[in-house]
Amino acid sequence: MLVDEANSALPLSDDIEFTDMKEAVDSPDRVAPVIEFRDVCLSFDEKVILNGISFSVRRGETKIILGRSGGGKSTVIRLILGLIKPDSGRILIDGEDITDHDEPALMTVRQKMGMVFQEGALFDSLPVYENVAYRLREQGVEEDEVEAEVRRMLRFVALEDAIEKMPSELSGGMRRRVGIARALVGDPEIVLFDEPTAGLDPPTARTICELAIKLRDLHDVSSIFVTHEMNNLRYLSSEYAVIDEGGEVRFEKEGERLCMINTEILMLRDGKVGFEGKDEELLRSEDPYIRTFVHGK
């Protein structure tokens, strides 16, 4: 497929895969989900938030999570990171059951994940530079490498001139973008976006969606994308990124060439999975609840 070609043109560290490619094609490993929820239940005090949620995210897939405010979307993300534990059910990351992992074991699992917090959650006593560099510092990366990577990430979110600033000097949207830069440093395999575009202007929101598309199509990153905005959903489920002859990244609409877009939608409804599938099915759905969600009435 086209996307795969673009993929192999990139110097990705995927060469491990080649040796066992033949058997891997139909081995269960290949299709083993990166994130898997099996019948997860969770309640806070007496309030049931998740009541038997099962879903899975394949490698390189983006899962858009919809649901009303307070419906448990952020909770799902916190469960994936192991920040909280489910009451029952299992959570698997890369086939590894993390449900009963203790904190040190979870630390290793979390190394491969990046999370964009809904409220930013920047370290407010550290300048932007140190916030973005945080993970690299913890891994003991060399200083000049850290600086190059931090500048690259900040350029990515168009905030290179805010590098010396403290988080309190930034606007809400700028803080969110720093949060995105911080999550993406170190090239995580799994990226969790918790409403990354809320409160941002349309062009910036679009940039963030493009970023998520690039991660999905060019870097084989699996991601969860929580959002309330239908625009985001449209971008993510109808466009794909390719690298053209000039080596530039281009975004093409679905249907321009043959391509399967690796995005699915999951809707949480009263603690259950209310809908799971492709965007066309969602848009075509006759269910009144889904219709109010998609069309706003």
Partner: peptide, 14 residues
């Protein structure tokens, strides 16, 4: 309360 502890854990620091 500002979720910085969670962020720290999410970034793999104890």
């Amino acid at each position: 309360v500002s979720q910085q502890i969670e962020a720290m854990r999410a970034l793999g620091t104890d």
